[in-house]
């Protein structure tokens, strides 16, 4: 009986404790903007790859009674590549969910690390997009940004973003390959060559693209020059091609950057570093659209991910690649 009483008391205490734990926190309304204020978000997700842009949305506002916005600027720790700019249009989202631009200033001017835009309209609130094209100098480095805004009352507000680590990968999109013509792929150059060009630089050719309708499982293939001739039927290789590149087929890995901004998957440096290429073959046949292959060059200097964007039954395909120097 005594034990039962103890158990009942324990149960009641447990129930009370759980009720206390559910106590609701009171929401407080934030203070209204009483001075020049700014905020920023990074809109780009996924790895930051050299040559691709990082996109930010920079919002700024000042009470109407205090004045108007005069200028906005962004300073990057490493100067952006050509194409870096700060939008001179402010965007708002309409009832249909569409971003609508409103011209608010003159086109931005980039000098070294700083991109500046001056307002030409009388406005006290705006959201500007900033596009930073990642330069070659930033590869493997960290880059950070200081966004700032100046108002007519002489005040300045600033917002720091980053640091963001820039990927060591390189990207090349939409390379057209065709059976017997532009069929020789160099991972080092991230390029496709014809037979004459391949013969000129045989040491750089890692893969041969070919298409065979029979057997039906062959179709589109990427094959090393040194692969078993059974996987290079009817192919006469240019002199000197002898590299044995390891390949590992993948399906359902549609990298967003390679697939032209479709899908929501990203291949990053760490994926290329960690992929298990031990005992992998030196050919990959039966490739389909949206399939891919992990690649390791014979000298183990590079690893790459080749994505098949599209295929054509006439014997051609469009491929894209991410490459990491090991």
């Amino acid at each position: 009986m005594r034990n039962k009483n103890i158990q009942f008391s324990f149960l009641v205490i447990m129930m009370l404790a759980s009720l206390v734990a559910c106590k609701k926190e009171v929401y407080t309304i934030p203070d209204p903007v009483s001075q020049l204020t700014n905020d920023c978000i990074k809109r780009t997700i996924g790895p930051s790859i050299v040559s691709l842009p990082l996109e930010f949305a920079y919002a700024m506002a000042i009470p109407k009674s205090s004045g108007k916005l005069v200028s906005a600027q962004v300073e990057a720790s490493i100067a952006g590549a050509t194409g870096t700019y700060l939008e001179n249009r402010s965007f708002y989202t309409n009832a249909s969910g569409v971003d609508v631009p409103v011209l608010v200033g003159s086109p931005s001017l980039t000098v070294d690390k700083t991109t500046k835009m001056t307002y030409t309209v009388d406005t006290n609130a705006a959201t500007l997009r900033y596009y930073y094209v990642i330069p070659e100098e930033a590869r493997g480095q960290s880059v950070s940004f200081t966004f700032s805004v100046t108002s007519s009352d002489g005040k300045t507000a600033s917002y720091k973003m980053g640091p963001y680590t820039i990927s060591k990968m390189s990207i090349k999109r939409n390379l057209a390959v065709s059976n017997g013509v532009n069929a020789y792929i160099s991972i080092e150059d991230m390029a496709v060559y014809n037979a004459a060009a391949a013969a000129a630089t045989p040491g750089k050719i890692d893969l041969v693209y070919l298409y065979r309708a029979a057997p039906t499982t062959f179709t589109h293939a990427l094959v090393s020059p040194a692969a078993d001739p059974a996987y290079l039927p009817g192919v006469t290789l240019p002199a000197g091609l002898n590299r044995s590149t390891k390949l590992r087929k993948v399906f359902n890995l549609q990298d967003r950057n390679l697939a032209n901004l479709q899908f929501g998957i990203y291949v990053d440096d760490i994926d290329l570093k960690n992929v298990d290429m031990v005992d992998m073959p030196n050919y990959a046949i039966g490739l389909r659209a949206e399939a891919g292959v992990w690649v390791e060059t014979a000298d183990k200097k590079y690893r790459a991910y080749i994505f098949v964007n599209s295929i054509n039954a006439a014997g051609s395909a469009v491929i894209s690649m991410l490459r990491l120097t090991l």
């Binding site: 057997p215 499982t217 062959f218 590992r248 005992d279 992998m280 073959p281 050919y283 046949i285 039966g286």
Partner: peptide, 9 residues
Amino acid sequence: VLFGTDLKN
């Protein structure tokens, strides 16, 4: 198995 299958993996 299909032609070209890599039976090591």
